[in-house]
């Protein structure tokens, strides 16, 4: 077992211990906090696919996070209010079933990523960053100005959506559900990283001229990665909506895009467990230093600066040592 695997194991063990710690301290809020970490980590796993493996610095992943959240919120609000989503050509009603909501959230995010990616991936570097940001801002302002689903005030989900055979309102159950999804996403991410697609995607990051000259089109590879990335972040958004039982335009804001990016960079760009470590560090910092000083983000800034200047491999890179592998 190399050191990175050891660190990853510690992270998994830490998450597994959360319900025990919470019951030992008799503080269910710890579970909610850990669920936030897990969901943010999931959003980061999505971004890491594009940013880490593909080198696509998307500053617009809040778009997918928010669209996933709104998909969950809108479907649930229609179901809870007994208002059909559409009445023509046939009646479509909302739903409170997570197993239906998740695929819809992912499809919506995938479609958005396809459109945004198809346009923005024609550029690179700082232009790509700005175009992804611009698209996310467009969706953000649309959400604010659309009164049907709460506009600026957001949209409440009165009862958390349901999962078969589970009381999702129980914090520990919902936490374990989120953990299971994160585990699946991490498994998928690690498989993808080692697959033929992963090889082509990393090749495109390093040298797209080389990739094209052997006959693999970098654009299609990147677009596919961008869509998968958006889908995973969208799924995280759907879970986040259910965690808070509330969706608001802030999920779509550029600060959210920045935070998702911070999770990835803090933890270690292109590292499988980087987003988990990054999200954990972010939330722990927010809740340990946050109550002491409202300027906790100052500390975060220093940390981020240190990582970018001295430890490109992020926290995982510092602890595991050595360069990342291909």
């Amino acid at each position: 077992m190399n050191r990175e695997t050891a660190i990853n194991t510690v992270l998994v063990a830490g998450l597994a211990a959360v319900p025990l710690i919470a019951s030992a301290f008799d503080d269910p809020f710890i579970v909610t906090l850990a669920t936030r970490i897990v969901i943010f980590a999931l959003a980061g796993v999505g971004l890491n696919l594009a940013l880490g493996y593909g080198g696509l610095v998307s500053f617009g992943h809040a778009a997918f996070f928010g669209l996933g959240g709104y998909a969950a919120g809108i479907l649930a609000s229609h179901a809870l209010n007994y208002e059909p989503l559409a009445t023509w050509p046939f009646e479509i009603s909302g739903t409170t079933q997570m197993l239906v909501i998740w695929p819809i959230a992912m499809v919506v995010s995938a479609f958005a990523a396809l459109v945004i990616g198809a346009l923005s991936l024609r550029t690179s570097g700082v232009y790509f960053i700005m175009i992804t940001l611009a698209f996310a801002q467009m969706i953000f302002f649309f959400a604010i100005s659309w009164p049907a689903y709460g506009g600026e005030d957001g949209l409440s989900i009165y009862v958390r959506n349901q999962f078969p055979g589970m009381n999702t309102l129980d914090p520990t159950s919902f936490f374990l559900l989120a953990c299971a999804i994160l585990a699946l996403a991490l498994l998928f991410s690690s498989r993808l990283s080692a697959s033929r697609f992963g090889l082509a995607l990393k090749g495109a990051r390093q040298n797209d001229q080389r990739l094209a000259s052997v006959g693999i089109g970098p654009f299609r590879v990147r677009l596919t990665a961008f869509v998968i990335s958006g889908m995973i972040t969208g799924l995280a958004g759907a879970l986040f909506a259910d965690l808070n039982r509330f969706v608001s335009p802030s999920m779509l804001s550029w600060q959210t895009s920045g935070e998702i990016m911070v999770f990835v960079i803090l933890g270690g760009v292109g590292r499988l467990f980087g987003p988990v470590a990054g999200a954990a560090l972010f939330i722990i910092l927010e809740h340990s230093v946050g109550p002491i000083s409202e300027h906790w983000q100052f500390l975060l800034g220093i940390l981020l600066l240190a990582v970018v200047l001295f430890a490109r491999g992020g926290v995982i890179g510092v602890l595991a040592g050595g360069a990342r592998h291909g």
Binding site: F188, R191, A194, R196, I216, V221, T224
Partner: peptide, 13 residues
């Protein structure tokens, strides 16, 4: 590039 499978996501390459 010749063998194909660039859009295979799971198998170990």
């Amino acid at each position: 590039s010749g063998a194909g499978g660039t859009f295979r996501f799971l198998g170990r390459a």
